[in-house]
Nucleic acid binder design. Structure first.
Lengths: 221, 221
DNA sequence: AAGATTATTTAGATTTGTCTAAACTTTTAA
DNA sequence: TTAAAAGTTTAGACAAATCTAAATAATCTT
């Protein structure tokens, strides 16, 4: 698999996880920041290699081999993110771009040794699960802050949008993974939410709320 | 700089350090495992970008910018080698191939943070010096075992050949960087050398001796 | 259900890095 | 000091990944 092919597989993987339909040429072009015609060409090549199944005008889906390969790339990406944050003290808005490069390094031994070195982490700095050596992904149950209930207490377990701007906003407001958050009030007018954490209150917009993932605290194992 | 360009710069850098003449097209082709015609094409491109100066039929030399870039790649290569060996427990014959990939990751911050994480190492696992952030290289004074003197005690500080086979030979014979070696006898007939270390004696061939670098022990600062 | 709009594919061109084969320099050696 | 050998460059081709523009298919709209 070349670098370009791996990036396509990863993009198809992400889009499949978002909507359950076949992935359209245009959606892929958008995701890859390229032209639809380029996508068609690449898809044909991936179909030749049995990494995707492709019906013209119908879209594309990953084959078993294609998905396995995509998961390996995702695993490497997320492990490197953990490394950058925990060992090299990158901030969580900086890790993504470098991990985009590191995810293409080809050495199973490197990946597995890195995993071990990091203590077999379960999630990356954005709360996304890290596939294990065999490609198994432990699903994390999480609720968006927009779906949280007034009066209930949650822990922040992830973000949907991992753009630098959003992560910097969270940093500036001292919200990070593990922060305990209580829902004070949900404002029906603009869907903003007033939350309380670390003994301070904060009102966040719907846009922020949509992109913050929470997990209800306690009263289960 | 693309990946291919970086590899050419690195190859030119290594060849310049070996012979002080201009680097010939054929020598580069040999080093790069490619054809002379491909080399000519690439050299022209690098000359366009002012990374090398090139006179047809005369060979090529690195420009200031070209050398600076080559040194950066070498720095990354050697830092990653230290990382793989010290942090991920790779053996010293395994680090090279993976470092060949990692050396092309583009992020100055990553390189400098990695350097710091490793404690600013001075040499890589083969005893080669690691350029600092500013491209400065601390020259290591070393003698080949073939030039060592009978009766004198040395420390092993590096290897010339870092092929997997040679390094495995050293491992099998328990020679590593830092091993103290006394020269018992130099055999003029075949230039083999009888050495003593860790209270055991060993005869090594000229080929081995040529590729082991030593430093005379004590009696200086 | 036909025409308009949108989505997708094809055709042909471009760039990067490589190759083979032929042409051309430089060096070596008689 | 030339002819042969060795080294180097040029010309023309190819594969990968991309693009633009044109053609074609699918879908919406009324």
């Amino acid at each position: 698999m070349t670098l370009a092919e791996e990036n396509y597989l990863k993009a198809i993987y992400h889009l499949e996880n978002q909507s359950s339909n076949d992935v359209s040429t245009n959606a892929l072009a958008e995701e890859m920041q390229t032209k639809a015609s380029s996508v068609t060409d690449m898809i044909k090549k991936l179909a030749e290699k049995n990494m995707v199944s492709y019906i013209p005008y119908q879209g594309v889906t990953l084959s078993k081999a294609g998905r396995a390969h995509a998961v390996k790339v995702v695993r490497k990406h997320r492990l490197w993110e953990v490394f950058l944050l925990e060992k090299l003290n990158f901030s969580w808005d900086e890790v993504h771009d470098v991990a985009e490069q590191l995810e293409h390094i080809k050495s199973e031994k490197l990946t597995d040794k890195l995993d071990e070195f990091l203590g077999f982490p379960k999630v990356d700095p954005h709360g996304d699960p890290i596939p294990d050596k065999h490609g198994h992904i432990e699903k994390i149950d999480k609720t968006s802050l927009t779906d949280a209930q007034e009066g209930v207490t949650y822990v922040c377990v992830g973000v949907h949008d991992s753009s630098s701007d959003f992560l910097k906003y969270l940093d500036a407001n001292h919200i990070s993974l593990g922060t305990t958050i209580e829902i004070i009030h949900k404002e029906p007018f603009d869907n903003s939410v007033k939350i309380k954490f670390n003994d301070a209150e904060l009102v966040v917009s719907e846009n922020v709320a949509k992109n913050l993932f929470l997990q209800e605290v306690s009263h289960n194992s």
